[in-house]
Each structure stands twice: as structure tokens, then as C-alpha cells.
Write a protein that binds this DNA or RNA. Sequence first.
DNA 1: TGTCTCATGTAATCCGTTACATGATTGG
DNA 2: CCAATCATGTAACGGATTACATGAGACA
Lengths: 180, 180
Amino acid sequence: MTRTTQTEMAVLGGLSVAPMTGYALRQAISDVLGHFWSESFGQIYPTLSQLESQGRVIRNGTERSSPYAITQAGLERLRELLAEPVQQVPPRNGLLLRLFFGRQLGAEVCASLVRDARHDAVGQLAGFAAIREEIASEPDTELEHPYWLLTVSAGEHAARAAIAWADVALAALDENSAPT
Amino acid sequence: MTRTTQTEMAVLGGLSVAPMTGYALRQAISDVLGHFWSESFGQIYPTLSQLESQGRVIRNGTERSSPYAITQAGLERLRELLAEPVQQVPPRNGLLLRLFFGRQLGAEVCASLVRDARHDAVGQLAGFAAIREEIASEPDTELEHPYWLLTVSAGEHAARAAIAWADVALAALDENSAPT
DNA sequence: TGTCTCATGTAATCCGTTACATGATTGG
DNA sequence: CCAATCATGTAACGGATTACATGAGACA
């Protein structure tokens, strides 16, 4: 019901792809979902313990590094969670907040902020190309690929839009600081 | 230093445009900055009290509804805050998380999620047109307009990108669910 | 041998929303 | 006169990060 279910969803979802340790789960989330999701250890480990006590995940061995695997009950729980309505997070974009009050900063400083943002977006685009390759090189999970690629495409569209916006914004700021 | 400064920035920034009550500030933030920022009363009122005790804002009268105004010290503080590095918030996109694990949901359900997102984006675009008009109808704040329009433009680019992505995503999902 | 990565866990802390309480003012 | 809006404030709660503590195994 609360936002905790979001972490549960990410954890169960990750384990639905392949069994993993909590550590590996964190790695996978930050590598592949990094552009639209994040989880910290402080969330992952308690969630795993809780899910284990509910029989939704199990560990094959008792060893320290034995991976968690999702159970049938876990799969059902995952589907239940995925079907819940998407909750919007209140937006907080520090860059746009600064630009909105940009008159106090001056056009020059604003322009450098926008250039930074453009640079980040270009880097992200390169990152998405790498993720595409990584996905293509995993034949085991072929059935999931169409869905994974949807999220990559979303990131690419957003990054390209950010770049296009940055270009028009820089042109506008230039006009502003250097009147004819 | 911490994230509290973000609220301080928004409050001082708002008052740098025009004196306002806390209530009106909240209104203004949700109306004009709504697509990239949000503040709740639980944040605004304590922040205003704190800023007042620091001499960064003052109230003209002692009446209940007398607006807060920014002082010189407040303006300096605002510039200081705006110059701080932009902090990235950890991303959390519930829609993309669901799509990533979309195989568990099925192509049909995913498609309806994407259609909803497309619908939202179309609505946002219309909202931006309204904000543009609202801004144009305020000659008092003309010097701020170029900066305000940067943020509107950012929203429009993002919304258009969301629509374009939704269209390709829907095509891909369709292909998926209805094999030739 | 010593450092790095793997691996788990928890306590402190923070930021922020939600919900509640209160009351003045306005307009139908 | 009653409902809606304006206006302020605070307490409770919750979700998440950060930081710290611990220790095993790898490898150079």
C-alpha cells in the first residue's frame, strides 16, 4: 500500500529474472535500471529478510553468498504489485528551479548550467548504447528484451529532448546576454 | 548544505518576484512551478518563520494576512543558494519499472499503461500553453520572463518526447502481442 | 600480507508529506 | 447564515539515504 511496495517490486522483479545475492541485486539495479530507478542497501536487505519470512523468496544454501531465488508465491506477489496504480513522485528539478530564478544568477551562469545539463545528456545517450549491447548479449533472457528496450528507448527520447532543449535554451540565453 | 536549502531557495525565490503570504506562495509554486517543483505547507511555514528570525524576510504589517517580503539579506542568501551545485535526486519512475518487468504483466496491460502516460503528456502540453499565456499577461515581471520561458520550454520538450516515445512503444507492444 | 571486492546488516538521521486543529473572511 | 476559501501552524509518520560495523574470499 505504501511506498515500501515499490522496493518490494524492484526486488521481486529483479529476482524474477535470475537468482541473485542482495549485493548483486543492488549492482544490477544501479547498472540496468539506473536511469529510472535506485535502491540502497538499507532498503534491499530488510526487504529481502521480510520476503524470505513470507516465503516469497528462498535461499538455496545456507552459505553467506548463496543467492536468493523467487518462489511461486513471490511471483504472484510481484504480479499483484505490478498491477497497482503507478504513484507519481512530487517533482523536484534543481536545475529548472535555478533557471526559473535565473535573473538573480545572470545569463552567463545559467548558460553554464545548461551546458552542464547538455553534457550529461550526451553522456547518458552513450550509456544507453552500451546498455543496448549488454542486453543483446544475453540470449538467456530473450523474452524480456522487448520490455527492457522500452525503458531504454524512453531514456533515449528523454536524453535527446534534453539536448534539443539545451540548444534552444542556450540560443535564448545568448540573445539575452548579448543584445544586438 | 542539506536538502532543506532547496525549500529555502524556492521560498526566497518566490518572494523575490513579489511579496506574498505563505498560502499564496504555495499556490504560486504549484501553479507555475508545478511541473518541476513542489512544496507542502509543512515545509513552507516553518521555513518562513526561520527566514523571518534571520532577517531574510519581513512582514509589512502584524495582521494575519500581511504578505512576506524579501529583504536585502534575503536576496543575498538567495543568490548564495542558487549558486550551489545542483543536487540530483535518485530517480524513481514507477511506469518504467513496471514496463521493465512487463513480461509478468503482459503486452496488453503494458500498452494501456503507456497510453495513460501519453494521455498525461498531451494534457501537460496543453497546460504549458496556458502557462505561456499567463506569463505573457504579466507585464510587471517582464525581466524574469525569458528565464521562466526556459522552464516552460523544458517541460514542452519533455512532454513531446514522452508522446513520441509512447507512440513507438505502442507500436512495439502491438507487434509483440499480435505476431504476424 | 595487505588491500580490494563481495556480502550482510543496522542505527542515526533527514527530508518531506499527511493529517489535524484553528480561526478569519468572503460571498451566495 | 452557512459553505468555501484564505491563512497559519504543528505533530505524527514514513520512506530512504548515509554511515558505520563486520567479516569472508580473492589476488597481487
